[in-house]
Design a protein around this nucleic acid. Sequence first.
RNA 1: GGUGGGGUAGCGAAGUGGCUAAACGCGGUGGACUGUAAAUCCACUCUCUCCGAGUUCGGUGGUUCGAAUCCACUCCCCACCA
Length: 377
Amino acid sequence: MDLKFKILKKDKDTLARVGEFRTPHGVVETPVFMAVGTQATVKTLTKEDLETIGSQVILGNTYHLWNQPGNEIVKEAGGLHKFMNWDRTILTDSGGFQVFSLAKLRDIKEEGVTFKHHKSGKKLFLSPEIATKIQNDLGSDIMMAFDECPPYPATYEYMKNSVERTIRWAKRCKDAHENEDTQALFGIVQGGEYLDLRKHCAEELVKLDFDGYSIGGLSVGEPKEIQNEVLTHTTPLLPEDKPRYLMGVGSPGMILDAVERGVDMFDCVLPTRIARHGSAMTTRGRVIIKNKEFERDFSPLDENCDCYTCKNYTRAYLRHLFKADEILGYKLLSIHNVSFLVNLTTNIRLAIKEDRFLEYKEKVYRDYGLNEKDKDF
RNA sequence: GGUGGGGUAGCGAAGUGGCUAAACGCGGUGGACUGUAAAUCCACUCUCUCCGAGUUCGGUGGUUCGAAUCCACUCCCCACCA
């Protein structure tokens, strides 16, 4: 499905751009940060929470929903939107990341990937055709081609084989796609740190004419310099008139660096995961809320934030919730962290529109109190 | 008063002659987390000048090359019986 991506404004200094695309569930303004809701839930957050935060898009996961509750049940429920009560845009990952994250439990072959389910021990087979069928059943607005997210580091030879297979798989996904009028399909550029493989992969995928292009296989342990180098060389190879999606990136600094290099979409479990683990992203850096220094800190988590959590609760209270193992803490930090990244992308759009993107980027870096070499960026 | 059980690091609790500064859990203090096998995981948590050394297992005194572990006395706690 053509997302009718439109560029509304280009930055004067960089490849950053403000754009918008349209799905059956609304208009999405880019750059956008998308919260991850693997199992048909952004952990701890309700639809209302996400709407208040301003989430335009959330993710679901093919592999996990296939296993539980099963794509047929979701289809019977009327699709993923109805099933989980989310009427804005949904993007589904294909299971390609599970080829990476469940590496110990799977075996890759040309035909597809065999997994041993981590709970049931059941043998599962996922292929480009099956992953596409599942996503057709789920009814997401944007589907991902089934790929291999390769590990870092990987040898050139390994990566070359992997990339070639991912390209063949991308073609198979495109051929298997049955709802071309309602669901967009993105190809995923792989190639690790090898720029010639990235180039080759991008060119081959572009020939297949996808509705958008993802950059995958980053944020898997490689240094930030490599991420930026790969982006610098890869985004220019992707069509300007299609959305570009950097998968799995959610640190504020990397989002800014990627927007600068022409990326439009981001997703990451980081805000929700670290929230449940007691950390918050704030305009002045990361805060580990359990730390003793916040015991008597009756100020908001982030004085520059207007999210529900920051408007209503203090650091001392949030610390108390975590020390006392109270579940409200997970929710309040999740609300804040997702808000933080959604607000960041909103501010990025504004800055680009006002021709001050680089200035804004530098301010965020400066306020965070970190420099570009820090891992948090 | 009698009989039995027990006193181990902040708490709970292993350990009954050397491999024990003492398992493990909790608590405490730091840290990690990036297309979610994650309300998870890691480190430290007697003292010091932290390589290394010094003091510990209710108290005191013994036995022994060596004791949290064995013996004697003693002080507390619990249960049951009077």
